[in-house]
Simulated scan of single mutants.
Amino acid sequence: MRTNTLALAAASAAAVLLAVPAPASASRAAAQAYLCEEDGKRDSRGFSSVDGTELEWDDDSRFDDARKHVVKVWTAGSLKQVRIKPDGATSYADLEWKDTRQTANGRHLVYGRWDPNTGTDYVWFNRAYLDDGRKLGADVHRRRVAAHELGHALGFCHKPYNGLYPSLMWAEYSHFADKGINGPTEQTDIKAYHALWG
């Protein structure tokens, strides 16, 4: 039996390349994408509003522009694993968009909130800050708040704040607003999405 020397050399080189670990910076970037700010928390399919691979929503909010924006940014490009769509006549909403107006009882400077429940979950827009003429009373702010809260509904936790790995899922609104982040970031959020949803 004759051995092809060139084929054997190519196979050996391929085996060596496969054994070389990824650069440390790439490994850190991947790990950073999935870290949560709060100890012990992780991105989780189980702690999301997603039913299987669908998230059906119902809208009872005056901020329809913000809801349209977030459906667009969380289903753009390669983000197709979770279907985000309105609920139908024969289905129940997994998530409902609602409005509130609160500044007391822990709601001071809370612009929006994802509220998981045993049935339908809610995303609350706080009109005390988001109405026209208020502190964040413009479409750009309402869109950012909604995109962040839908991130929670998709199972994502707050990401640690640092300048190297920008994220829509930073806990402080000013952190992602100051960076002009209006949707999931390539460096962190999209990687986390694919790690969680495929």
Rank of each mutant, 00 (worst) to 15 (best):
Y122N: 04
A153D: 00
H152P: 04
K179H: 04
S61P: 05
W114R: 05
I84L: 03
E172W: 09
T120W: 01
G133D: 08
A31T: 04
A171K: 09
S12V: 09
G119S: 06
V123E: 02
A138Q: 12
W114A: 11
Y165G: 05
K72F: 03
A128I: 08
T100K: 11
D58R: 06
D65H: 13
A192L: 08
R83F: 12
S12Q: 11
D51M: 03
R143A: 10
V110L: 13
D115I: 14
D132Q: 13
Y193D: 00
G183Y: 00
V50G: 01
G40H: 05
W170C: 01
P160L: 07
V110P: 15
L150M: 07
D43P: 02
R83L: 15
L168F: 03
W57K: 06
T103M: 03
R67A: 05
R42T: 06
L18N: 02
D115T: 15
D132V: 06
R28H: 10
V123L: 01
W197T: 13
A22V: 00
S78G: 14
D65Y: 08
A89P: 15
T5W: 11
K159W: 11
Y173A: 11
L6H: 12
Q187G: 08
V145W: 04
G151F: 03
S49C: 01
Y173S: 07
E54K: 09
C36F: 05
E37Q: 11
A146W: 02
H158T: 02
